[in-house]
């Protein structure tokens, strides 16, 4: 499972950093750093973070190009 955060949209409400602190972290006051390839044991937390994001900036999905042959 991969994520990407639309950081144009992100306004540092930090809900994600509370719900999945091993994946999302505020760097300084409002710069968000995150782990794009979500570890298996964090997936449930990341799903919750994506739903909770007030500006809906977190996109969750399978790895793009997984069907590369």
């Amino acid at each position: 499972m991969n994520i990407v955060v639309d950081l144009n949209r992100c306004q540092a409400y930090a809900q994600c950093a509370f719900l999945a602190p091993e994946v999302f972290e505020l760097h300084g006051e409002e710069a968000l750093l995150y782990v794009p390839a979500v570890p298996e044991d964090q997936q449930e937390r990341v799903h919750r973070a994506a739903v909770a994001c007030p500006v809906q900036a977190i996109l969750v999905g399978g790895a793009a190009g997984a069907d590369v042959r």
Partner: peptide, 14 residues
């Protein structure tokens, strides 16, 4: 480790 998430399957030839 910065692979993009897919929004949906694209059924493409890569």
């Amino acid at each position: 480790g910065t692979g993009l998430p897919a929004r949906r399957p694209v059924d493409a030839q890569w």
